[in-house]
Design a protein around this nucleic acid. Structure first.
Lengths: 140, 140
DNA sequence: GTATCTGCAAAACATTTGCAATTCT
DNA sequence: AGAATTGCAAATGTTTTGCAGATAC
């Protein structure tokens, strides 16, 4: 799972187009931010991260954009806490661990033989979310 | 996992006291409702479910009560969707599957040999939540 | 009689919506 | 020009808070 590479805005523009999204300047900025920042930002964090590049940017545009991205399966939403919606450009199956002390959200990747249980009774699963709450290494 | 039994308000009063909570009439009503209704109600659903017994009941009291219950580990909160907070009196490790068609939330119990993956890197897990989204048997 | 609990009204806060202005082709 | 996109201002909806009245021991 070596997603630690970063992408340029040009790369991201191309990816967006491939995924069926018209790459406007704001959309490129949001996707580039999300791809290169794997700390599961909220809409406001994304906004603060790119407002300096686009002084006219509004939070509404961030919300419009992440909603569009979700509908086109470009990013996923993380509902680990009830008062904040976070976003993740990594669509691979992995969990999220939130430290109740420092508030940070960490990725949890599974090794090969790990198996996530699935519902048995004819439920057609489209999406699995696995959340952990507790304390991270630094905060214990 | 045979929790399909129902409890009387008297039973619930006793359980609350055992768990360190002063069993007021409203608290007993909320806990009895949650124990006997395993469909993961929201605060408003609980409210509508018991308002007939307590005409003076307020939503604020529901919120106060579920918050108190959570703090004392009597119930757990389910954040499966961002615009609604649901509650569950079953604290055992199990998942929740929400049908995006009918909106219902189903319990997902695991069999003995199922193993939920855990974070490896020194993260101290206090709570695991496993969510599925998709379509239920009836809606497929 | 004092501490706890309840519930109204208002506040807080994140997200959504309506719509007019802007941008792109 | 026409369609898509942006962004302001207002609305929405859920949960929280302040506080006064009610209840319990």
């Amino acid at each position: 799972m070596m997603k630690d590479q970063t992408l340029t805005p040009q790369d991201c523009s191309k990816k967006l187009r491939e995924m069926g999204i018209n790459p406007s300047a704001q959309r490129i900025a949001v996707y580039t931010y999300l791809f290169n920042h794997r700390n599961h930002p909220t809409a406001e964090t994304i906004y603060n991260g790119i407002i300096s590049e686009y002084p006219s940017l509004s939070l509404t545009t961030i919300y419009n954009t992440v909603k569009l991205f979700q509908a086109n399966r470009v990013i996923q939403a993380i509902y680990i806490e009830d008062n904040e919606l976070r976003y993740d450009a990594d669509l691979s199956l992995h969990g999220h661990a939130k430290c109740k002390c420092c508030g940070e959200v960490f990725d949890v990747f599974f090794d090969q033989n790990a198996k996530v249980p699935v519902p048995g009774d004819g439920f057609d699963v489209e999406d699995i979310q696995l959340y952990y709450r507790g304390r991270c290494k630094r905060c214990r």
